[in-house]
Write a protein that binds this DNA or RNA. Sequence first.
DNA 1: CGGATTTGACCTGCGC
DNA 2: GCGCAGGTCAAATCCG
Length: 231
Amino acid sequence: MEGGQLETCLPNLYFLPPDNHSMPLPPPFQLLPCQPKLLHQMPFDQEEVGIHGVMLSSDNCGGLYPLPELPSFGKNSAAALGKPTVGTAGSMPNIGGGEEVTKASNESTTCNGSSTWWRGSTMTAAGEKGKMKIRRKMREPRFCFQTRSEVDVLDDGYKWRKYGQKVVKNSLHPRSYFRCTHSNCRVKKRVERLSTDCRMVITTYEGRHTHSPCDDTNSGDGEHANCFSSF
DNA sequence: CGGATTTGACCTGCGC
DNA sequence: GCGCAGGTCAAATCCG
């Protein structure tokens, strides 16, 4: 992910005034010890592009925080440059929004159950490479929020498996990558701490769970109580 | 012993 | 075209 693409995303972020929090939080957020506050919403037309994201911020007492600037989001990031964004309330970190999500319009969730969510196990070299490039651009709906917590991984009711950790530039803390362990559920999340305030944890969910949190230990398709599907 | 985590390598996209 | 940075894979290792 490059900060350079942030500008393509930022105009789609809006600050919601406190009295305009009409959008219900998705179940994972409702399960958190303290519900994060909605700060930003990505007002994409869901039907059109299949994207719907929010930015949230909270601490353990439910206090509302403006999202502080993150130092690590690329040379061209608006956050780094202090560019004004639409209705800024702090800066938009390049989490959950760095990619050009609008290209996901047609094939947004057609990840076809292959061994990897975007690469595909049956991909052949020449013919599929172009598709792979496109697929790389595809992004699931994302929800980004910030909490003040001692622990990196918040208990959101789902079971996660860590599949990677990466040191990000200009950040003191590594970013961790998690995948939902439920079969047929490709939801991922990234967790990192602010370098400016190590108590603050940025969590980004990507994708929609195909099961409910309580259904997490089961295998199968778990069609009921989709966390994000109606969101 | 099986599942989860760690970590280095690899791949891809993007900016210059 | 090249280099950098983010994201993912997969073998090795750890842990219950």
